[in-house]
Write a protein that binds this DNA or RNA. Sequence first.
DNA 1: AATTAATTCGGACATCCGTCCTAATATCTC
DNA 2: GAGATATTAGGACGGATGTCCGAATTAATT
Lengths: 189, 189
Amino acid sequence: MEGKNQSQRILNAAYKCISTKGYANVSLRDIAEEAGVVLSQLHYYFGSKEGLFTEVIKMMIDKYLKEINEALSMGETAKDKMLSLVNFFKDLLKNNPGLFKLLYDFTGLAMWSSSFNSLLKDLFNDLSKMIEEKILSNSALGENFRNYSPRAVARMILGAMFGTGMQVILDSNGNEILDALNAIQIIFE
Amino acid sequence: MEGKNQSQRILNAAYKCISTKGYANVSLRDIAEEAGVVLSQLHYYFGSKEGLFTEVIKMMIDKYLKEINEALSMGETAKDKMLSLVNFFKDLLKNNPGLFKLLYDFTGLAMWSSSFNSLLKDLFNDLSKMIEEKILSNSALGENFRNYSPRAVARMILGAMFGTGMQVILDSNGNEILDALNAIQIIFE
DNA sequence: AATTAATTCGGACATCCGTCCTAATATCTC
DNA sequence: GAGATATTAGGACGGATGTCCGAATTAATT
């Protein structure tokens, strides 16, 4: 009766291990132990390390798409939505840094492994599209925006979040850097 | 007579291997072979894997500090300097993506390993200071900048470069995304 | 030329890793 | 309840990795 539970427990354990210790520092044995399961169970349910990690990535992707979509649904004006997005990211970095590290780790993995590349590529594609549609589309933006396509601006906003977030994580007492996230809003003022 | 040459050759081989195949996919044996050297030589000259990688990181850091400093020395106005910085990054991503991947990889490493953390933390610290001093200090910036400290804006600009560059690398046919780098200049218009 | 130090070489080591295989146990079907 | 199926358990495997050691070779010093 633990059937579906078992694979879910493994998945959660994998998620926890990787987001706590980093992808490179986690072995399947670590995950099995964290899940309270015998090593061979991981292959029984997921076939291989790659199969397991693929599921973890999909789990993470769903979480990001859902939460960021929610954040972008708050507020009316582009300025408000941008603030909401910034606040989401600040909250994420402060209260759930593991989730951000997970994204960073897997993105790095996707730079070298073609197996994971499309998953992550699609994620950033979807996120930039979301930003483009929800923030940059219908509202009347300043004349500054004429020179750049909404797509390019959305990519840049997303990149600024990611790159600034990285600096926050890197500097463990970097609460000061958190303010840098606010500075993204400069393009709407 | 190869004395100093030998360690330099190892260093170069390590640099090449890591920037080509990714940190996680490189073994000391790979590096030794690339350098045309016996495995034990790596420990003779660098003591340990960590010691060798530390030197590679320092090499990379010097390169970034030097090149970005050069880019920021071109042009007079903040707008011009910003354009120069953007062009440097575009050129880097197009003609030397291995160097960017190296930065991404080691930054990820630094998130988990305290040994490398301070090295990378200092790099981003120095880079943001450079941006702050060379672009955001003396010139008369628009009134939009009143709301955010120059330090925060510099961090954000640096983050935008990094995060947008990551997206370019991730999408191998992402020449379109390269334009997103230009969009950073929106804050100066 | 003889002695000492520095470098190069080859291989062994212990350990960890992902994967696989077989037997035992539980669950389900009829 | 018997038989088939699905799950769990434990261990072995081949291979790869970082590290270390002793001998051979080369260079430096006297």
